[in-house]
């Protein structure tokens, strides 16, 4: 439900950058969304379609790249992709792991002319 707020922030910063680069029409916006965020791609897409209206991004396409979760073990430093919700280390069974990938939520680039 907070996707609307996220996309609002996204559009504001993209439009600001577009103005700086004198881009009149934005054609594509590429964002990266990790699997361990609570942003749903469908809701982001929907919010984008609603909020882009009457802006230079009025006809822009939102491209979403998903990033699966990748963890590293704080004990043995093994790097792995978890199976389901088993976030503990499959090598040394430690429960102390940190997230390397999967928490991304950023605009990578936009294109326009």
């Amino acid at each position: 439900m907070h996707e609307l707020a996220l996309v609002q922030g996204l559009l504001e910063s993209v439009l600001e950058q577009a103005k700086k680069h004198q881009i009149k029409k934005i054609e594509r916006v590429k964002i990266v969304v990790g699997d361990m965020t609570s942003a749903m791609p469908e809701s982001l897409q929907f919010a984008f379609e609603v909020l882009r209206r009457d802006t230079p991004a009025g006809e822009a396409v939102l491209e979403i790249e998903r990033r699966p979760v990748k963890l590293t073990c704080q004990e043995c430093h093994f790097v792995f992709r978890p199976e389901g919700l088993k976030y503990s280390c499959p090598q040394c069974v430690s429960g102390r792991t940190s997230i390397v990938e999967g928490r991304e939520l950023f605009v990578e680039y936009f294109e326009g002319e």
């Binding site: 996220l6 922030g9 996204l10 910063s13 993209v14 950058q17 577009a18 680069h21 881009i23 964002i31 942003a39 939520l105 950023f106 605009v107 990578e108 680039y109 936009f110 294109e111 326009g112 002319e113």
Partner: peptide, 13 residues
């Protein structure tokens, strides 16, 4: 033109 941003959506927060 392609503009790279790498801007976090939660940056303001």
């Amino acid at each position: 033109m392609k503009v790279f941003m790498a801007r976090d959506l939660l940056q303001t927060n």
